[in-house]
Design a protein around this nucleic acid. Sequence first.
DNA 1: ATCAGCACCTGTTGGC
DNA 2: TGCCAACAGGTGCTGA
Length: 269
Amino acid sequence: MPELPEVETIARDLAPKLRGQRIRQIRYDDYPPVFDRHSLSPRLLRGKRISGVERAGKFVVLRFGAEDLRLAVHLRMTGQLLFLPAKRSLPYTRAVFDLDDGKALVFADVRKFGRMRLFAGEPAATLAIGTDPFDRRLDAGGFSSLIARRATPVKAWLLNQRYLGGVGNIYACEALFYAGIRPKRRVGKLTSAERSRLLTALRSVLRKAIRHRGSSVDDYVDAEGLPGAFQNRLAVYGRAGMQCRRCGTPIRRIVLAQRGTFYCPHCQR
DNA sequence: ATCAGCACCTGTTGGC
DNA sequence: TGCCAACAGGTGCTGA
């Protein structure tokens, strides 16, 4: 479900609500494990005060006190991270963090793929997340050197979190549409003009999606349980057989890297 | 050292 | 209407 724009929306919403709140108690369902096998003991969180919330790749990261201690939450496909101002029970709850005054942070997940990890250290290094697409130090040259001479299809490259952190299936398809590049093209063989267009298109579509609070194609909701609005503005994702918004050609669906992949055969070369 | 393919889960949808 | 296969925003492991 959630990619960079959705996770960014959740993190921005949660930050002012959670900052200063203390973790009173934690309850969780551990089958399958909701804390991954690298996680420190969740008991360490009891009594800790939340000092900040940020996004790292597709993770929502909570920080505690002035310490190095952080909790990373990955929503995978159907995870939801919800702030509840008053006690309430939700279906598919996997973990509940009781906060001050009856407030709570709830991690719910129908498919149970989502995981959390408590760790000490820097998120990018610990979680093996590549460069953030919005990193100011990333320019066309840096982007091109991340690509190097890789033979993998450009869409598979975009989905690999070790190069760029945060791009998922929807926005990989969308960015390639706006850059005019077919998903199967070998990433290492893109011209420098194409690479440059791709970085620009990626940033632009991610920025727009954040402005519209993400895409609610299926289960995604923000920290208050409300859907985003960007699903109505998608150019190719989920539009197989429908007319391209730019040229009218039917949008094509193929499977690439085991994922549904959408593109316009006329606008993308 | 890569990388395709499958595993992990449950719910929804579309074809017959 | 009913059944069942295919599919879903992601990633981690295995074996070639």
